[in-house]
């Protein structure tokens, strides 16, 4: 998905004025503004988050970044697998796409950690109490960093870097999936996933803003992905010319 839009945008960039394709970027901007405004002034608080339910407003930013932190990993994994099974010639761009997804994943993961900590601070009174879900997000952040550290260590040999980091992405998928699916089920956590999943606790406008926020964050991801890919292509072009 992100791949094709990026490709189209890059092509159109070289031929027609750069504003083409800007409509959805503008749309993303407006949607984001709407979400930020709505998070504080439109949506009512959710039940189960203190008396006013205002504490649930952190959710509008925490949940989308946490979702994207996982989605980015899947996108990265998708490109890693494609890379490993493509013939090795001129496929370094696929590896670059994997790397970009992982970088953005690290970014969203960091955002999720920070917003999560803020939420823990207002809801539970401490910003950090080693709840399994808190530990999970930190480890996810570590996994992302390890991937990027591995890439950094292999900068001198792009093919080897692509190969080894793709493998690492697949290996680290095992703990990453355990963090998402197994840890919340096996370990006891205070994380209010269930409270939110019960639709009786939230109002329709709350859910509207939440879904809008998820959409806005996803569009933001695609946009950032495109930007980074374009930057990569420019560097690659310059290197090929050298």
């Amino acid at each position: 998905m992100a791949d094709t839009t990026a490709g189209v945008a890059a092509n159109s960039k070289s031929q027609v004025p750069p504003m083409t394709g800007a409509w959805w970027k503008l749309g993303t901007g407006f949607l984001m503004i709407f979400v930020i405004y709505g998070a504080f002034f439109i949506a009512k608080g959710a039940a189960g988050f203190g008396e006013s339910g205002d504490k649930a407003r952190a959710v509008f930013f925490h949940v989308p970044s946490a979702i994207l932190a996982s989605v980015c990993y899947f996108v990265g994994m998708y490109f890693s697998v494609i890379y490993l099974f493509s013939s090795k010639r001129s496929t370094l761009e696929i590896d670059a796409k994997a790397a970009i997804s992982m970088e953005l994943g690290a970014l969203f993961c960091l955002l999720a950690t920070i917003t999560g900590s803020i939420f823990a601070g207002i809801q539970w009174g401490v910003f950090w109490n080693w709840d399994p879900r808190e530990t999970s997000i930190v480890i996810t952040l570590l996994l992302y960093s390890s991937y990027l550290i591995l890439r950094g260590a292999l900068n001198s040999n792009p093919t080897k870097r692509a190969n080894l980091s793709a493998v690492y992405c697949l290996i680290a998928l095992v703990p990453q999936q355990f963090l998402i699916w197994a840890v919340p089920r096996i370990l006891e956590t205070n994380h209010p996933t269930k409270v939110l999943q019960n639709s009786g606790n939230t109002s329709p406008d709350y859910r509207l803003i939440l879904w809008c926020s998820i959409l806005a964050f996803t569009l933001l991801f695609i946009w950032l992905f495109q930007l980074r890919l374009r930057a990569y292509r420019l560097v690659a072009k310059k290197e090929a010319a050298r």
């Binding site: 399994p132 550290i149 680290a172």
Partner: peptide, 19 residues
């Protein structure tokens, strides 16, 4: 590098093991 890329993976495992 071995520690840097291995320990995050093993941390998840240790979490399960300690549980």
């Amino acid at each position: 590098l071995f520690g840097a890329i291995g320990l995050p993976i093993i941390t998840v495992f240790l979490m399960l093991l300690l549980n």
